[in-house]
Amino acid sequence: MMKIINADLYKSFHRTYLYVMMACLAGMAILFNAILASQKAPLEATFELTVNFLTIPLFFLSMFADVITAEENKEHTLKNTVSFGFSRAQLFLGKSVSTILVMVAVASVTLFAYFASAFLLLQPQNNDLYPVLSNYAVRIGTAFLIYVASVILATLLAAFFKRNALFTFAYLGCLFVPVFLSKLLGLVNPVFSKADAYLLANQTDRIGAIAQNQLINSVWVALAHIAVFTVLGLFMFRRQEVN
Protein backbone atom coordinates (compact mmCIF):
# COMPACT_ATOMS: atom_id res chain seq x y z
CA MET A 1 0.00 0.00 0.00
CA MET A 2 2.94 2.32 0.71
CA LYS A 3 4.03 1.88 -2.90
CA ILE A 4 0.62 3.03 -4.15
CA ILE A 5 0.81 6.07 -1.85
CA ASN A 6 4.37 6.94 -2.92
CA ALA A 7 3.45 6.70 -6.58
CA ASP A 8 0.31 8.81 -6.07
CA LEU A 9 2.34 11.53 -4.37
CA TYR A 10 4.85 11.46 -7.25
CA LYS A 11 2.00 11.78 -9.74
CA SER A 12 0.17 14.53 -7.85
CA PHE A 13 3.23 16.72 -7.36
CA HIS A 14 4.12 16.43 -11.04
CA ARG A 15 1.14 18.34 -12.28
CA THR A 16 0.26 21.99 -12.50
CA TYR A 17 -3.35 21.50 -11.34
CA LEU A 18 -2.30 20.93 -7.72
CA TYR A 19 0.00 23.94 -7.61
CA VAL A 20 -2.69 26.16 -9.12
CA MET A 21 -5.10 24.92 -6.46
CA MET A 22 -2.55 25.64 -3.71
CA ALA A 23 -1.86 29.11 -5.08
CA CYS A 24 -5.58 29.94 -5.34
CA LEU A 25 -6.34 28.80 -1.79
CA ALA A 26 -3.27 30.54 -0.34
CA GLY A 27 -4.16 33.66 -2.31
CA MET A 28 -7.72 33.60 -0.94
CA ALA A 29 -6.39 33.27 2.63
CA ILE A 30 -4.06 36.23 2.14
CA LEU A 31 -6.80 38.26 0.47
CA PHE A 32 -9.16 37.53 3.39
CA ASN A 33 -6.62 38.88 5.90
CA ALA A 34 -5.79 41.84 3.66
CA ILE A 35 -9.48 42.83 3.59
CA LEU A 36 -9.66 42.54 7.38
CA ALA A 37 -6.52 44.66 7.66
CA SER A 38 -8.05 47.33 5.44
CA GLN A 39 -10.98 47.42 7.90
CA LYS A 40 -8.56 47.78 10.85
CA ALA A 41 -9.85 44.48 12.32
CA PRO A 42 -7.80 42.91 15.14
CA LEU A 43 -5.92 39.61 14.77
CA GLU A 44 -8.49 37.76 16.90
CA ALA A 45 -11.23 38.67 14.41
CA THR A 46 -9.73 36.55 11.63
CA PHE A 47 -9.84 33.43 13.80
CA GLU A 48 -13.39 34.14 14.97
CA LEU A 49 -14.58 34.65 11.41
CA THR A 50 -12.87 31.74 9.63
CA VAL A 51 -14.35 29.10 11.96
CA ASN A 52 -17.70 30.06 10.44
CA PHE A 53 -16.51 29.22 6.93
CA LEU A 54 -15.51 25.62 7.57
CA THR A 55 -18.31 24.25 5.35
CA ILE A 56 -16.78 25.83 2.23
CA PRO A 57 -13.90 23.32 1.90
CA LEU A 58 -16.47 20.47 1.71
CA PHE A 59 -17.42 21.78 -1.73
CA PHE A 60 -13.96 21.43 -3.24
CA LEU A 61 -12.57 18.44 -1.34
CA SER A 62 -13.78 16.24 -4.20
CA MET A 63 -11.02 17.81 -6.31
CA PHE A 64 -8.43 15.85 -4.31
CA ALA A 65 -10.24 12.58 -4.97
CA ASP A 66 -10.45 13.65 -8.59
CA VAL A 67 -6.65 14.06 -8.84
CA ILE A 68 -5.93 10.73 -7.15
CA THR A 69 -8.76 8.35 -8.09
CA ALA A 70 -11.48 9.75 -10.40
CA GLU A 71 -9.01 10.72 -13.08
CA GLU A 72 -7.42 7.25 -13.05
CA ASN A 73 -10.85 5.69 -13.30
CA LYS A 74 -11.70 7.95 -16.23
CA GLU A 75 -8.38 7.30 -18.01
CA HIS A 76 -8.59 3.51 -17.34
CA THR A 77 -5.19 3.45 -15.65
CA LEU A 78 -6.41 1.59 -12.55
CA LYS A 79 -6.11 -1.61 -14.61
CA ASN A 80 -2.32 -1.14 -14.75
CA THR A 81 -2.27 -1.25 -10.94
CA VAL A 82 -4.71 -4.14 -10.41
CA SER A 83 -3.15 -6.31 -13.13
CA PHE A 84 0.18 -6.11 -11.30
CA GLY A 85 -1.36 -7.91 -8.33
CA PHE A 86 -2.51 -5.15 -5.99
CA SER A 87 -5.68 -6.19 -4.22
CA ARG A 88 -8.75 -4.00 -4.43
CA ALA A 89 -8.51 -3.38 -0.67
CA GLN A 90 -4.91 -2.15 -1.03
CA LEU A 91 -5.98 0.02 -3.92
CA PHE A 92 -8.95 1.61 -2.12
CA LEU A 93 -7.07 2.19 1.14
CA GLY A 94 -3.98 3.41 -0.70
CA LYS A 95 -5.99 5.88 -2.77
CA SER A 96 -7.85 7.12 0.34
CA VAL A 97 -4.62 7.71 2.28
CA SER A 98 -2.98 9.39 -0.75
CA THR A 99 -5.95 11.74 -1.08
CA ILE A 100 -5.78 12.62 2.62
CA LEU A 101 -2.03 13.30 2.35
CA VAL A 102 -2.46 15.54 -0.69
CA MET A 103 -5.26 17.35 1.16
CA VAL A 104 -2.92 17.80 4.17
CA ALA A 105 -0.20 19.19 1.88
CA VAL A 106 -2.54 21.73 0.30
CA ALA A 107 -4.07 22.59 3.69
CA SER A 108 -0.59 23.12 5.18
CA VAL A 109 0.37 25.58 2.45
CA THR A 110 -2.98 27.37 2.81
CA LEU A 111 -2.74 27.52 6.61
CA PHE A 112 0.86 28.74 6.39
CA ALA A 113 -0.21 31.54 4.05
CA TYR A 114 -3.19 32.27 6.29
CA PHE A 115 -1.23 32.46 9.57
CA ALA A 116 1.71 34.32 8.04
CA SER A 117 -0.54 36.95 6.46
CA ALA A 118 -2.65 37.20 9.64
CA PHE A 119 0.37 37.85 11.85
CA LEU A 120 1.96 40.22 9.33
CA LEU A 121 -1.13 42.25 8.47
CA LEU A 122 -3.24 42.23 11.65
CA GLN A 123 -2.50 43.52 15.15
CA PRO A 124 -3.63 41.54 18.24
CA GLN A 125 -5.98 43.16 20.79
CA ASN A 126 -4.58 41.11 23.68
CA ASN A 127 -1.01 40.15 24.33
CA ASP A 128 -1.93 36.59 25.36
CA LEU A 129 -2.99 34.85 22.16
CA TYR A 130 -2.70 31.32 23.55
CA PRO A 131 -6.44 30.84 24.43
CA VAL A 132 -7.52 32.13 21.00
CA LEU A 133 -5.03 29.98 19.10
CA SER A 134 -5.68 26.81 21.12
CA ASN A 135 -9.44 27.22 20.69
CA TYR A 136 -8.90 27.75 16.96
CA ALA A 137 -6.62 24.71 16.70
CA VAL A 138 -9.19 22.41 18.37
CA ARG A 139 -11.94 23.57 16.01
CA ILE A 140 -9.73 23.24 12.93
CA GLY A 141 -8.65 19.79 14.13
CA THR A 142 -12.29 18.71 14.46
CA ALA A 143 -13.04 20.08 11.00
CA PHE A 144 -10.05 18.13 9.66
CA LEU A 145 -11.64 14.84 10.80
CA ILE A 146 -14.84 15.81 8.97
CA TYR A 147 -12.78 16.54 5.86
CA VAL A 148 -11.08 13.15 6.14
CA ALA A 149 -14.50 11.45 6.22
CA SER A 150 -15.60 13.52 3.21
CA VAL A 151 -12.46 12.63 1.28
CA ILE A 152 -13.02 8.90 1.89
CA LEU A 153 -16.60 9.32 0.66
CA ALA A 154 -15.26 11.11 -2.43
CA THR A 155 -12.73 8.32 -3.07
CA LEU A 156 -15.46 5.70 -2.76
CA LEU A 157 -17.59 7.52 -5.34
CA ALA A 158 -14.59 8.29 -7.58
CA ALA A 159 -13.93 4.57 -7.87
CA PHE A 160 -17.45 4.03 -9.22
CA PHE A 161 -18.29 6.96 -11.45
CA LYS A 162 -16.20 7.44 -14.57
CA ARG A 163 -17.73 10.78 -15.42
CA ASN A 164 -16.42 13.69 -13.38
CA ALA A 165 -19.71 15.57 -13.37
CA LEU A 166 -21.57 12.52 -12.09
CA PHE A 167 -18.97 11.84 -9.42
CA THR A 168 -19.04 15.44 -8.14
CA PHE A 169 -22.82 15.48 -8.22
CA ALA A 170 -23.00 12.20 -6.27
CA TYR A 171 -20.47 13.49 -3.72
CA LEU A 172 -22.35 16.72 -3.06
CA GLY A 173 -25.63 14.82 -3.07
CA CYS A 174 -24.42 12.34 -0.44
CA LEU A 175 -23.27 15.21 1.77
CA PHE A 176 -26.07 17.73 1.42
CA VAL A 177 -29.25 15.88 0.38
CA PRO A 178 -29.59 14.25 3.85
CA VAL A 179 -29.31 17.73 5.40
CA PHE A 180 -32.07 19.01 3.13
CA LEU A 181 -34.23 15.94 3.80
CA SER A 182 -33.86 16.16 7.58
CA LYS A 183 -34.91 19.80 7.49
CA LEU A 184 -37.82 19.09 5.17
CA LEU A 185 -39.06 16.05 7.06
CA GLY A 186 -38.47 17.92 10.31
CA LEU A 187 -41.30 20.21 9.27
CA VAL A 188 -43.61 17.19 9.12
CA ASN A 189 -42.36 15.54 12.29
CA PRO A 190 -39.75 17.04 14.68
CA VAL A 191 -38.31 13.54 15.23
CA PHE A 192 -36.54 13.82 11.85
CA SER A 193 -34.75 16.98 12.97
CA LYS A 194 -32.86 14.89 15.53
CA ALA A 195 -30.84 13.46 12.63
CA ASP A 196 -29.33 16.91 12.12
CA ALA A 197 -26.84 16.37 14.91
CA TYR A 198 -25.44 13.23 13.24
CA LEU A 199 -25.14 14.41 9.63
CA LEU A 200 -21.60 14.99 8.39
CA ALA A 201 -22.23 18.20 6.47
CA ASN A 202 -23.92 19.79 9.51
CA GLN A 203 -20.85 19.34 11.70
CA THR A 204 -18.79 22.03 9.98
CA ASP A 205 -21.61 24.53 10.58
CA ARG A 206 -21.78 23.59 14.24
CA ILE A 207 -18.02 23.84 14.87
CA GLY A 208 -18.03 27.62 14.81
CA ALA A 209 -21.19 27.95 16.87
CA ILE A 210 -20.91 25.51 19.76
CA ALA A 211 -18.78 25.55 22.89
CA GLN A 212 -15.42 23.82 22.76
CA ASN A 213 -16.53 21.03 25.13
CA GLN A 214 -19.41 20.15 22.79
CA LEU A 215 -17.07 19.43 19.86
CA ILE A 216 -16.65 15.84 20.98
CA ASN A 217 -19.99 14.99 19.36
CA SER A 218 -18.66 16.18 15.99
CA VAL A 219 -15.49 14.17 16.51
CA TRP A 220 -17.53 11.00 17.08
CA VAL A 221 -19.73 11.72 14.08
CA ALA A 222 -16.63 12.21 11.91
CA LEU A 223 -14.97 9.03 13.21
CA ALA A 224 -18.16 7.03 12.67
CA HIS A 225 -18.42 8.31 9.10
CA ILE A 226 -14.74 7.49 8.45
CA ALA A 227 -15.37 3.92 9.61
CA VAL A 228 -18.61 3.52 7.65
CA PHE A 229 -17.24 4.98 4.40
CA THR A 230 -14.07 2.87 4.65
CA VAL A 231 -15.96 -0.37 5.25
CA LEU A 232 -18.50 0.51 2.56
CA GLY A 233 -15.72 1.36 0.08
CA LEU A 234 -13.89 -1.89 0.76
CA PHE A 235 -17.09 -3.89 0.43
CA MET A 236 -18.30 -2.20 -2.74
CA PHE A 237 -14.90 -2.22 -4.46
CA ARG A 238 -14.29 -5.87 -3.52
CA ARG A 239 -15.78 -7.34 -6.72
CA GLN A 240 -15.75 -4.22 -8.87
CA GLU A 241 -14.66 -4.84 -12.45
CA VAL A 242 -11.69 -2.66 -13.34
CA ASN A 243 -11.63 -1.41 -16.91
Binding site: A7, Y10, R15, E72, H76, K79, N80, S83, F84
Partner: peptide
Protein backbone atom coordinates in the same frame (compact mmCIF):
# COMPACT_ATOMS: atom_id res chain seq x y z
CA UNK B 1 -0.24 -6.95 -19.38
CA UNK B 2 -1.76 -4.97 -22.17
CA UNK B 3 -5.51 -5.37 -21.83
CA UNK B 4 -7.59 -3.50 -24.41
CA UNK B 5 -6.09 -0.07 -25.23
CA UNK B 6 -2.92 0.91 -23.33
CA UNK B 7 -3.89 3.56 -20.78
CA UNK B 8 -1.62 6.08 -19.12
CA UNK B 9 -1.85 9.42 -17.38
CA UNK B 10 -2.39 11.88 -20.23
CA UNK B 11 -0.50 14.80 -18.70
CA UNK B 12 2.76 12.89 -18.12
CA UNK B 13 5.51 12.01 -20.61
CA UNK B 14 6.42 8.40 -21.43
CA UNK B 15 9.32 8.47 -18.98
CA UNK B 16 7.30 10.03 -16.15
CA UNK B 17 4.45 7.59 -16.69
CA UNK B 18 6.86 4.69 -16.38
CA UNK B 19 8.46 6.31 -13.33
CA UNK B 20 5.00 6.47 -11.70
CA UNK B 21 4.53 2.73 -12.24
CA UNK B 22 8.14 1.94 -11.26
CA UNK B 23 7.50 3.55 -7.87
CA UNK B 24 4.12 1.84 -7.57
CA UNK B 25 5.59 -1.57 -8.41
Amino acid sequence: CIIETPSFLPYLSAEKNLEYYRIQR
